[in-house]
Amino acid sequence: MTFALQFTIDVLSLGGAYALMALGLVIVYGILKLVNFAYGELIMVTGYTLFLMGGSGLPWLVMAAVAVAMAVVTGVLTDYIAFRPVRAKSITAVLITSFAFSTLLQNAALLFISPRPRNVPLPALFSQTVEIAGVITPVRNLVTIAAAVVLLAVFAWAMRRTVLGIAMRAAATNFTMARMLGIPANLIISSAFAISGLLAGVVGILWIGRIGSVVPGIGSEPLLVAFIATVIGGMRSLEGAVLGGFLLALIDTSLNYLLSQELLKFRDAFTFGLVILILLWRPEGLLKGPATGQRT
């Protein structure tokens, strides 16, 4: 019983973070049909904003809010700098500019701050533990679960009930048709980047809360996780990304518990092996999403 609870908390807290990462990536992909490779740097920006405000004496929640806001701003900037100027030209160009933007941001942190880790201020809550039915668990895991539930619920509601959400879903299904019906393309795309930044900002704080410091390359792991999760879940489906995030966390955590010490060294090989099996079974990912995919 204790084990089951421990396992559930582990999967949900890791899965919550993974799901948010994946959702932030797929929201842009859904509309542009392009992976934003500068996505990991949004998490980096969140971390460095927290670090830079470390000595300011502001309440932590204010610092966290500013950090998330910076991620949103950087997300929108990604659109303006890396995507918009070349969006209509070629896929290759956009891929390269998004890589370039990512490298640019990472190296800016490297040059102007330091290649060495920098500490971020964290509230005491992030290093406290609670005991639930005999299981001692860090509070930040519960915070992650709560944040994921709230954000996913708000997101699901907004996509179904608000004009912007409906317009974004329409754009993701058939962008040309949506534009003909009067949906402003630039606004929709910028909104997607802003939401992507918001999700990256929140997940960045939760992720950095586990680590306690920020390095220029901090975003590469979340980017990889988000990418794999969206591929398993279905690149075109928002629900798929969330499902993929939780599934990846389930696979990782199960392997962590199940594999023997000798095999645990090769855990990533097992994880990716399972991912390949899933893709052989469902080449489009678990959930299919709207039946289009033409880049417009």
Partner: peptide, 17 residues
């Protein structure tokens, strides 16, 4: 006990168990 960790996991719960 000798246990294994994967860099970048940022998750130590299975090892703790």
């Amino acid at each position: 006990l000798e246990d294994t960790y994967t860099n970048g996991d940022n998750n130590f719960s299975a090892q703790l168990a």
